[in-house]
């Protein structure tokens, strides 16, 4: 369920690094906790983001949850498809429903994130 090559945060985001770019999303655990996701608010391409700071939010019918950037850098791409189909976040949170791609500003930050095993033990599974 939780790919070994991903990195995770305690705020329930995942990160996959390809070269100088990180792709991020919310974890399967997060989507389950939220329930049916109805809306995703994402930053604009070009936005400078900072590790641990809010970059957007995901909403279910009766809850809003902030999304925190797991790394610092610049947003280079956002997943436009989610605007019309937020349900994808419930269906495939670790794949098709990625949220944004960030060009890494401080690649060393990755080491501060959790491994799959650490995340699993953090969420008690």
């Amino acid at each position: 369920m939780y790919p070994e090559n991903f990195h995770y945060t305690k705020e329930h985001e995942w990160v996959r690094v390809d070269g100088d770019t990180a792709t991020m999303g919310i974890t399967d655990h997060a989507q389950k906790e939220l329930g049916d996701i109805v809306y995703v608010d994402l930053p604009k391409t070009g936005t400078a983001v900072e590790q641990g700071k809010t970059i957007g939010s995901v909403e279910s019918v009766k809850a809003v949850s902030d999304i925190y950037s797991p790394v610092s850098g610049e947003v280079v791409e956002i997943n436009e498809a989610l605007a019309a189909a937020p349900e994808k976040l419930n269906e495939d949170p670790h794949g098709e429903a990625w949220l944004v791609k960030i060009r890494l500003g401080s690649p060393e930050e990755i080491t501060s994130l959790l491994s799959a095993a650490e995340y699993l033990s953090y969420i008690g599974e």
């Binding site: 109805v38 279910s60 019918v61 009766k62 809003v64």
Partner: peptide, 8 residues
């Protein structure tokens, strides 16, 4: 209703 005070 996530725009509203009782949630946000």
């Amino acid at each position: 209703s996530t725009r509203e005070q009782h949630i946000r």
